[in-house]
């Protein structure tokens, strides 16, 4: 089974599934257009879905990359680092609305600075200064100069 399911074949299968699903959903799009000759809003996604499914079939049959489906270009340490960063970004996205830009960005920058040091020791006070300066500069540029309404922390 593992020999059959190569990276190319998994890619082809996923393309076929996604393309098929998009075609199925798009086929139900009505109305068929304002004029009789207008193909309606379903035609374009059907072209996209059918094309994707067809390409998926070709990729599946060509099977040009026979490596295991989950073989990564990164080593284990690299994957862990990417995972940590992804979790940090997801948490940042989840809390920025409630904690506001200043607090959440400061925490994110402090933690990312440590993560991107790749094991090298960066003094905590340097990280603090970097965090404060960057957060402040971005806030000043976007909120004070460009009048962008970045999320704020409101206690009440």
């Amino acid at each position: 089974m593992t020999k059959f399911l190569t990276k190319s074949r998994l890619c082809g299968l996923l393309c076929m599934l996604l393309g098929g699903a998009a075609c199925g959903a798009a086929a139900r799009f009505t109305p068929k257009g304002l004029l009789a000759s207008d193909p309606g809003p379903g035609l374009f996604p059907i072209i996209g879905g059918a094309g994707l499914a067809l390409c998926g079939l070709i990729i599946f049959l060509q099977n040009s990359d026979k490596s295991p489906p989950f073989a990564s270009d990164f080593d284990r340490t690299g994957l862990i680092r990417i995972g940590e960063c992804a979790v940090l970004l997801a948490v940042y996205f989840a809390v920025i609305g409630s904690l506001g830009f200043l607090v959440s960005t400061a925490v994110l920058l402090f933690l990312l600075c440590g993560l991107f040091a790749l094991g090298e020791q960066v003094a905590w006070w340097k990280r603090l200064i970097f965090t404060a300066l960057t957060t402040g500069a971005v806030w000043y540029l976007f909120v004070e100069v460009l009048s962008v309404m970045l999320p704020r922390f409101d206690l009440f």
Binding site: C11, G33, P41, P45, G48, G51, C55, G56, Q62
Partner: peptide, 22 residues
């Protein structure tokens, strides 16, 4: 095939939202 698959994926992504014309 991979290049075309990517292009068709882009077509599906841009289909999200209100369709043009109607």
């Amino acid at each position: 095939a991979r290049g075309l698959a990517s292009a068709f994926l882009g077509i599906l992504l841009c289909s999200v939202g209100f369709s043009p014309i109607d």
